[in-house]
Nucleic acid binder design. Structure first.
Lengths: 147, 147
DNA sequence: CTGAACCCTGTAGTCACTACAGGGTCAAGC
DNA sequence: GCTTGACCCTGTAGTGACTACAGGGTTCAG
């Protein structure tokens, strides 16, 4: 009954690279599967399930160590959920902080990109990074606006 | 007049680690400064300026290679700005894509975290990861770590 | 029986740093 | 003059989460 996959089949089914699957095994996120006589890995449906769990966790942005914890919790359903909840909460806070960072970046970049650099205004991006004013400060290249 | 900094002083002034400053030199982002007899680096105000340029670029999320390009553009103000503008535009698009990814994560996590896991019911996070059809599908890039 | 497609191990590369280890130098205080 | 402690040097290795080979072995269809 239990379907057996080669690493390639498992890869296709799960959308995870074979190299990544082997990597997960190496770091102990997936159990080492039984091997054929020639040394090929053969995966059970249970391991395929576990791999999908890992992939979904990664898609949500959890780190490997967080996923390791979540796997342990999933393996012991009698354990308190508060750990998983706490992890998710923490992770949510991190995601929100990252969004805030990126939104700040977006705003600054948006202002800089908005510059119609066809005009005489000389590239606001460079100016912004190079705090001394390349255009406003007169002397330097008054005609710089070749472009 | 030209102030000369040791690497430590430059580090304090710029907010960039000494180790990172040496790293920038190693990869050619900063010029190798002159040395004292005993081999200590001594930085000019111009290099300090360049370092601030780099730091601001990093804060905006530009990669090292992008900053290398921007530095070249800054060194040649007569060059067309369109390259810098293009870089900024591209980068803005990447930032926006990342924000969208993270917002998808935030939504899913927000729903999962809402679970009142005091109850005996196994928590929604684990369930969501463990089941075939969980949360929003096809969500996000696996490299959400970003930095 | 040949060739492609698959599998194996092990190592090194990615990005942008950061953290040592194992030394040398400098300035101040005693 | 000597010690102390803060600073500096080089070089290597570690981080996270993979990815990309190199250099081989296996399997199966034609």
């Amino acid at each position: 009954m239990s379907a057996r996959y080669t690493i390639g089949a498992l890869s296709k089914e799960s959308g995870v690279n074979p190299e990544t699957i082997r990597y997960y095994e190496r770091i102990g996120l997936l159990p080492a599967p039984p091997r054929s006589d020639s040394g090929y890995r053969h995966y059970s449906a249970a391991t395929a399930q576990r791999l999908r769990f890992v992939r979904r966790g990664r898609e949500l942005g959890f780190g490997i160590e967080e996923i390791r914890t979540l796997l342990q919790l999933a393996d012991h359903p009698e354990a308190a959920c508060s750990t998983a909840d706490e992890l998710a909460r923490q992770h949510l806070a991190e995601v929100e902080a990252k969004i805030a960072d990126l939104e700040a970046m977006r705003e600054v970049l948006g202002r800089l990109v908005g510059c119609d650099s066809q005009s005489a205004e000389h590239c606001r991006l460079i100016e912004a990074l190079d705090q001394r004013n390349c255009c406003g400060h007169g002397a330097a290249a008054p005609d710089a606006g070749g472009q």
